Simulated assay, not measured.
Amino acid sequence: MLLAIDAGNTNVVFALVEDGKILSRWRIATDPRRTGDEYAVWLSQLMQLEGYDPKAVDKVIVSTVVPRAMHNLEVLSQKYFGCDPLIAGIAPVDYGMDIDVDEPRSLGADRAVNAIAAHAKYSGDLIIVDFGTATTFDAIDFNGAYKGGIIAPGINLSLDALVSAAAKLPRIAIEPPRTLSVIGRNTEDQMHIGVFWGYVAMMEGLIERIRAEIGRPAKVIATGGLAVLFDDHTHIFDAVDVDLTLEGLAILAERAKAK
């Protein structure tokens, strides 16, 4: 059984995968100081609660954008699962796709893995929108080549910046405005409108510009924790695929096994 680990800036997601199917997934806040032993205690308990035997894991693959977290994840894999982890982007787990940008090595592992999974699942030109600490937009051509993208502040970062810089503004939840009107009648409604609809407008505007630059029809695939929230309030997405990164890791693990 494969354990796929996606270590992002905000959360680390662990998933059990068998025959390409995600059986279960668990999420914990990213903390580079968390040791391999701490991960093992937490993860083994959750696995057993759902009826999975940790001893059944014989392969581990990791994608991370947090280099400081890598060592402890390696310890977890070696000490508790008895194997050296496969690292996305490092032989024998090369991405196996054309990265057509100025600095290919600078492409984040999560974005590369998303591109691999999206090209495997969807046809034609693609735009992947990943809602994380940052919101990224990635353009993948019909051959599966990564052509570039956009990095924007995540909606939580935008809200944190607004609240920290304006002393009188309250902290609000990330949720749709309570009114359909875009003219707020009180401070909290005005903040909800500005943060939420402002973010939707930014997203729709950037996708429209990317599509125009591609010059061909392009499907828009949304992933990440907030994708479902925004999907209910825009028609810009052709599909919402919250497990895209994990599925990309499973594909890479299968390719490495074939080698």
Rank of each mutant, 00 (worst) to 15 (best):
I183A: 09
F196K: 02
P177K: 12
H192W: 04
A222C: 10
L206K: 09
E204M: 01
P176A: 03
I193H: 02
L226R: 13
A201I: 03
V228I: 12
Y199V: 01
I221S: 10
T187C: 02
M191Q: 07
G184K: 07
M191H: 04
T223C: 15
L226C: 03
A218H: 06
A212G: 00
R211C: 07
A227F: 13
N186K: 00
T179Q: 08
P217F: 03
L206Q: 12
G224Y: 13
Q190D: 03
G224Q: 14
M202I: 10
G205Y: 02
I210G: 05
V195I: 15
N186H: 08
A212I: 01
N186V: 05
P176M: 00
T223I: 01
L206E: 01
G198K: 11
V228T: 14
R209E: 04
I193S: 01
A201E: 13
H192I: 10
E213P: 07
N186Q: 03
R178K: 15
I183T: 04
V200R: 15
I210H: 09
V182R: 05
R209F: 03
T223W: 05
L206S: 08
V195L: 15
A222T: 04
G184F: 08
L180E: 10
D189L: 12
D189C: 02
A222G: 12
A227W: 15
I183E: 06
R216I: 07
V228G: 11
P176R: 00
I210T: 06
G184M: 06
I183D: 05
R216N: 08
R178Q: 10
E204H: 07
G194D: 11
I210M: 15
V195C: 04
K219T: 03
T187I: 08
I210N: 06
G225D: 06
I193T: 15
A218L: 07
G205R: 00
T223N: 05
W197V: 03
R209P: 00
M202N: 08
V228P: 13
G198V: 11
E208W: 00
T179K: 07
A201C: 12
G205E: 00
A218P: 02
F196V: 00
G225C: 04
M191V: 15
